[in-house]
């Protein structure tokens, strides 16, 4: 008996479905006229949705244009050159973020970069000063990732100085987004050329410059310090 009660809902559903199928076969729902109306309404809905997407600008953002990306890429390369030539004083003031001073007490200063420090580059230059102050200056150009300007969301790296040891880490950032592409991405040939790769990925410089008096000794634990 219990088994019968358990199967009752399933039986009811089957009977209901059979009834619907029987009924549906009697009434022709998709007559040509109704079909054309449905199609027309669907296309109208599509047009309304397109207008809706265009109107709701507070909920949509556009990616940067190729021209803007190229400008940013050129700027990045310019800063790269300055970085390579150790001309930190020539980096435009717009990109200056902060400067800190740390006092070293021992001759050996260690630097450890966190495992996830990938974008921030650390460079050491020497000065003739007799003081024990190490000046850390951080520069950041606008950060563009996947053709979007995410400078506002990016946090500067954290610098910890303990017992003559620098620990430099980047704060991990989760970046979730939804994108609309009204095109056939799958048919686009994959561009292996460096230019478009850079345009689609990461553009921007994050530079940490340590100006160290000559009488200190820098021990680079990670091998990434320039």
């Amino acid at each position: 008996m219990n088994v019968l009660i358990a199967f009752l809902p399933i039986l009811l559903i089957i009977v209901f479905l059979l009834g619907i199928i029987k009924l549906a076969s009697r009434i022709r729902i998709w007559t040509p006229k109704r079909t054309s109306w449905v199609i027309l309404i669907y296309f109208m809905l599509g047009v309304i949705s397109l207008i809706g997407i265009l109107i709701m600008q507070d909920k949509t953002t556009k990616t940067l244009s190729k021209q803007q990306l190229k400008v940013a890429l050129e700027e990045e390369q310019k800063i790269d050159e300055l970085y390579g030539a150790d001309k930190f004083d020539q980096i435009p003031a717009d990109y200056f973020v902060f400067t800190n001073s740390y006092e070293g007490t021992a001759e050996d200063i260690e630097i450890t970069l966190g495992g996830n420090v990938y974008n921030t580059r650390v460079a050491v230059t020497w000065n003739d000063s007799e003081s024990n102050h190490i000046i850390a200056t951080y520069y950041e150009t606008p950060i563009i990732f996947k053709r979007m300007d995410i400078s506002k969301d990016i946090q500067p790296p954290t610098i910890e100085f303990k017992n003559n040891h620098f620990y430099i880490t980047e704060e991990e950032m989760q970046f979730d987004f939804t994108s609309i592409q009204v095109n056939l991405e799958m048919l686009k040939p994959i561009d292996y050329d460096q230019m478009s790769y850079s345009l689609d990925h990461f553009i921007g410089n994050r530079i940490l410059h340590l100006n160290v008096p000559k009488h200190f000794n820098i021990i680079d634990n990670s091998g990434w310090v320039d």
Partner: peptide, 9 residues
Amino acid sequence: YGSLLYNES
């Protein structure tokens, strides 16, 4: 991308 994790739908 380093410390930058992303997820795109």
